[in-house]
Design a protein around this nucleic acid. Structure first.
Lengths: 387, 387
DNA sequence: TTTGTTAGTTAACCTGCCTAACACAAAAAC
DNA sequence: GTTTTTGTGTTAGGCAGGTTAACTAACAAA
């Protein structure tokens, strides 16, 4: 009943072998005794598991580690048979690509700056993705093993097969880009990706629930509750840019108005309209406004404070709905420590106690998150049912 | 290595025995072949599992079922050794008690109407809970087996051992009520309980995620996402009464103001203030308002419509944050079909597509939900790790 | 009474882990 | 340079928890 894996499909592995493989993927190179102790596996079981995993080159020995006494221990890592993944962040200003093994050793990375900021995903972005993926694949070496999964982070809502694909613009990314056949495709919203990255590698490491709030050209949120990413029925969970606004007695709320009020365009517009002539030239964009505020400009500081307070009110709304306990601020404005105190004050004044932190990953968060999701999908392919 | 279970602690059961027991708890009496087919267990394994479960009386045979041909099949159900649970809904107007076996056979039930509507939980409620629980326990028969779990649904935030218990008032229920020693206690917010009940037995059966919105004296929400109840770091997930309000440019939002505006007190106040003198006497409470609206009174209908629209705006806020895809309306006003179209229209206009339904369980939802949670806790006690 | 069909038990086996005991390698002790 | 100490890896055997195969038991219809 031996299942010969000619291509990259699931080989029938024993439970302990799966656990060992997962451990090597998650925690990087380890010696046999380290793995055995961590997973509470006996040495014979470790021997059997390693033997199982070495046959399809899922793992490979990379050396021996000598302790103070005794025989040296063999060290293993994920092997070439496990293959690799390509992670792509198709953003509005850049296309970022990471090619990595399942244990996140970087095989190649590319960054393309788009000629102009693309407000929505379009054919230009699609062409750029096609070119970058082709370039990454052309550089492939035999030691990379098979390509298991291609992950794509998109600045749109993303719905699965059952959903209403038309209403999202997610298909536009394929207008000029044909994904390689036979490779599993993983699509995810870019803010959700950033949240995943913060959860595993960034400011939310160790938290079982938190909200990642992106504050930039658009505003959005990625929600992780009970250790799992919340996507929503229409892929719209966390679409706080779509909150209706204003919300007051007698007022007529307009859907999506929160984004128009809180996005950088409207924000910088209000700043410039309100800028006193004697204070010199008004800032041209939020980056300039931030640097003016950093150097102590009182008018700039006042506007940043005000915006932080507005963001805090939105954060408070989210806190009242899901009570995540932790909020990580990201995106162009959210990465700045200047907004942090204002958001923190407003959110805690208006709702339940919540910790607020800045991103630790910055612009790399999205591509790291889609990389993580691609690796998880590859693990499901290889050993089934990632725990 | 045989573990003799003298009291009610975990007996070391085999995996298949646990699965059989769980199946009997969840789906009620079944024959051996039914269970075996459903769980893909061979007949020898079924024999072993049943034998294991019969020794501690976790299951018992209750008869034989005859098919069209062949030998009749033995039918089993959960036995007295599995014990029972007590579920208590300590509400603001009633205290409801259900005593049931783990497979939800009702052993006893009690309803006490409180002398006056208690706006918050207090010693009066605590005394009532003590009396009702004592009465239920006094009626216990030997066939009920041991009391495994006491579940309490409370109209407060509920936090676990790690949390800030002081801020929640949840301890007030124990001011005059001492829970029976040695019995596992399960506390949960009453709206969350109602959500759990709708998820398993009511309007949200089969949905993997939805929001239960309670509209009555207070407003609140219970969130189920990815099949699990979302409680939040401070037990405040779904506390939409605590949303700050108003939320508009230049306005100063006040925390908790949403409840003051949307609760029945303020609502009926606005109705009475606005009531035209020629329309006759104004309604005294929302129940009267609803019945006037039902019989076609135009002024009553107008106010109900307006309120539905306000509720719809809050629902839209929740939909934009978590996109549950389904919202179940409950509570005194939420149970009425009159509000449904207005909420549905406003929510879908202001946010993403969302199905809106009325509760199917009404005032029983909370006690049924805490019963379910108590049973789940009892299962964890008996077989560990409820899947 | 025979026959066909379904229910349950017994026997034998398989998988996936374990412990016990032994063989092996490398530093430390002599 | 041998021997000891200590940790690494393998071999042998056992056990838990499932399987299939084959038999016995029970019951309705012919």
């Amino acid at each position: 009943m031996e299942q010969i894996e000619t291509d990259g499909t699931t080989a029938a592995l024993t439970g302990s072998a799966r656990a060992v493989f997962r451990r090597l993927v998650e925690d990087g190179p380890s010696t046999r005794p380290q793995i055995g102790n961590a997973l509470h596996l006996s040495r014979p079981t470790m021997s059997a598991a390693i033997a199982e995993l070495e046959r399809p080159r899922y793992v490979e020995m990379i050396g021996a580690v000598q302790g103070s006494f005794g025989r040296s221990a063999a060290q293993y890592r994920v092997g070439s048979g496990a293959g690799h993944v390509i992670a792509v962040d198709a953003g509005s200003t850049h296309v970022r690509v990471r090619v990595s093994t399942l244990d996140r050793r970087l095989l190649a990375s590319r960054i393309l700056r788009l000629p102009a900021s693309q407000i929505a995903i379009n054919e230009e972005v699609s062409r750029a993705v096609a070119a970058e993926v082709a370039a990454a694949r052309a550089a492939a070496l035999p030691g990379w093993g098979p390509l298991r999964v291609l992950g794509l982070a998109l600045p749109t809502r993303v719905v699965g097969l059952g959903g209403d694909v038309i209403s999202t613009r997610q298909e536009v990314v394929f207008s000029a880009f044909t994904p390689p056949p036979g490779v599993t495709l993983v699509l995810e919203n870019n803010v959700n990706c950033a949240a995943v990255a913060e959860q595993h590698y960034g400011a939310a490491r160790g938290a079982s629930g938190f909200a990642y709030v992106q504050i930039g050209l658009k505003i959005g949120m990625g929600l992780v509750l009970g250790d799992q990413l919340i996507r929503g029925r229409n892929g719209a969970a966390g679409e706080i840019g779509h909150l209706s606004f204003p919300f007051a007695p007698g007022a007529s709320p307009v859907p999506g108005e929160a984004e128009h009020y809180l996005g950088t365009e409207a924000f910088i517009g209000r700043v410039r309209a309100d800028w006193p002539e004697i204070a010199g030239p008004s800032p041209i964009d939020t980056a300039e406004l931030l640097s003016m505020a950093e150097s102590g400009n009182a008018d700039a500081l006042r506007h940043v404070e005000r915006h932080a307070s507005d963001i805090g009110a939105v954060v408070a709304t989210c806190v009242s709905v899901v009570d995540p306990g932790l909020v990580v601020l990201g995106g162009g404005l959210g990465a700045s420590p200047l907004l942090l105190p204002g958001v923190r004050e407003a959110a805690n004044r208006l709702s339940y106690p919540v910790e607020i932190r800045n991103t630790l990953l910055g612009t790399d968060a999205t591509v790291m998150g889609i990389e993580r999701l691609a690796i998880e999908a590859a693990m499901t392919l290889l050993i089934g049912e990632e725990a």
